[in-house]
Nucleic acid binder design. Structure first.
Lengths: 172, 172
DNA sequence: TATTGTTATACTCTATAACTATA
DNA sequence: TATAGTTATAGAGTATAACAATA
């Protein structure tokens, strides 16, 4: 029985027409991102470790004692989403919450010893996966791609704040 | 009360460290794609019209009488997902299913008259949104971005077929 | 009152499996 | 027996709301 899946799109089948889709940046970004996501577990092995969960570990590792609201803000998560992501790693003994002396409401997030080890391995696996994703590109192409994507993210993020959902964030 | 949302990430807050995240193509792709997705309804207006649902209308418009399994293959959807997406537009009188003479199992998908009109407007709105997303880029940068993204999608798609989920697709 | 964090809850999306009708 | 399409169902993921503890 054949597997039903949306993870192997096969873009650009010459038998069909795609209209303006292939000339839309948003369409290409989504396809590339979905491809990255769908091949992620092949390199990482553990299917429960998603790019988001990896990024949680990475950011906590870089910012020991980070508040959960700060983690949420950095990664664009809601508070409950941050709670759940931390719970995931806490259940695996990779993250711990510690009360802060200065503010009793805050429970700073820290890597555990085994969390450090897991992160160290994970960083290498993720970097390898990322290299594989872009192995068809030259160094110059890759550097240009990163610069361009950062421009889109930075430039459009500030615009989004003024015109989109950010408007509601600022509104009382 | 402030709105809880993950749609306005605010990447690169200088107060924090991001480790290797900003140098990962996958991370940048996801952020750019999420930004595109989160600002999409601002241009389109109707929140129920997602990029995916638009692409369904676009592909059917370009390939009248398309089979539903073909639509699914083109857009990387499962059969049930294709059914639901077509149902959405059928309920809005934009798409119809018609029995095919040559094969009684097939119900080809077609645009209705009002579907043509909706698509024509939608194409313009989507193109405008896409232009806004990349308005910080020069023409050369945009062209390079598209070429590079297509390389990633095409190059990696064929590799994915050989090593990833495609393996299970081919396996009995 | 406002903020940190958790829990409760619901909604969307998408996956698999099972069913139908045709071939 | 295989394929096109639908329906049923369940699992992630993520959203809001409400709550507890602290400021």
């Amino acid at each position: 029985m054949a597997r039903q899946s949306g993870s192997d799109p096969g873009l650009f089948d010459r038998s069909f027409r795609y209209g303006q889709l292939p000339s839309l940046t948003g369409f290409l970004l989504r396809r590339a991102s979905l491809l990255d996501f769908s091949t992620f577990p092949d390199t990482i092995g553990d299917r429960s470790i998603t790019p988001l969960r990896y990024s949680v570990l990475e950011v906590v590792g870089e910012n020991p004692g980070l508040q959960q609201v700060q983690l949420a803000a950095i990664l664009g998560l809601t508070k409950p989403a941050a709670t759940l992501a931390i719970n995931f790693w806490e259940a695996r003994n990779c993250l711990t919450r510690r009360k802060t002396a200065s503010d009793g409401r805050v429970r700073g997030v820290h890597l555990t010893g085994s969390g450090e080890e897991v992160l160290a391995e994970l960083r290498q696996d993720v970097a390898r996966h990322d290299t594989e994703l872009t192995e068809c590109l030259s160094e110059v192409e890759l550097a240009n791609l990163h610069n361009t994507l950062r421009k889109i993210i930075e430039g459009e993020t500030s615009k989004a704040r003024a015109t989109s959902s950010g408007e509601r964030d600022l509104a009382k």
